[in-house]
Design a protein around this nucleic acid. Structure first.
Lengths: 146, 146
DNA sequence: CCGATTTAAGACTATTTTATCTTATTTAAT
DNA sequence: ATTAAATAAGATAAAATAGTCTTAAATCGG
């Protein structure tokens, strides 16, 4: 039940790394550090993070001691925003059977079932901020790497 | 939030077509009919249905008036069986962030959240039979095509 | 200014998924 | 037997995803 592309996967993990990083206080976190800490291809990660920069979640800074940083407070960035940028804004509007225009008025046979699931995921993602995740990761010592 | 491959998608729709087909009574339903009715590539559908034949869900018969048929009563075939054959048997054991060995003992940051979702989908799929779906499709006149 | 560091951007390659095409093989009907 | 109808199987092609590599642009420190 793979629901996220590798790009989103890496993007989320990178953001969670930033908000749960031991060494806080740096203005910017370098992509090299993230790719090494999380064991993600540097160039691929770079491209993904560019999407988040363009998507208003990150700011980047070039040059020595440059890197990326959250553009807004971690409390204000919800998981749903990240996923929508990386997976597309129709991420939560899909039909499980791939039928166009499947909705309450014109449902597919599993619409009722899938709608509930999608709704729950959407709600979870919409109410969970990077800040909340960061706190949990630190306090419960959760992992971001294989 | 695409969770099924096109193969599973077609496979499920084909099975649902069979159990909700107007013209019941035929020993076998031809793949040509299914592919035309559901607007699915004939050859791709064929390969998918072969997996279900090998997977003990369907039987096939060649020659004139041949086709495929459920190997067991529709009441006994749960959606989960179909999905596991087409998506792999570890379909419900994945980590949302793609981390190996993510489980209750060694969870990723979204494990608790994802576990609940996976559990619900798994439960739904494990308790819904093709027969139940077929009845709903007929009685509520649900669609299987775009 | 110059060189080192770092992200940005685009070209390129590899892998997986999806789809198509061709050739068997089985079966029924004549 | 022969022909047509149907699935089985494998080769090939196209498209999407994933990953790599190279070059450009920005920034800092000397």
């Amino acid at each position: 039940m793979k629901v996220l592309s590798n790009a989103s996967n890496y993007g989320l993990r990178a953001l969670l790394y930033i908000v749960s990083r031991k060494k806080q206080g740096d203005a910017y976190v370098s992509l090299r550090e993230i790719s090494e800490e999380l064991d993600i291809s540097f160039h691929f990660l770079t491209k993904t993070m560019q999407l988040l920069t363009q998507g208003d979640v990150l700011v980047s800074y070039r040059g020595p001691n440059g890197g990326i940083a959250l553009k807004r407070p971690a409390e204000e960035i919800m998981l749903i925003e990240v996923v929508k940028i990386l997976e597309g804004h129709d991420f939560f509007d899909t039909c499980m059977l791939g039928l166009e225009g499947c909705d309450d008025c014109n449902p597919c046979p599993v619409h009722h079932l899938w709608k509930e699931i999608k709704g729950k995921v959407k709600h979870d993602f919409a109410t969970t901020s990077l800040a909340m995740m960061g706190q949990r990761i630190v306090s419960e010592n959760l992992r971001l790497v294989p």
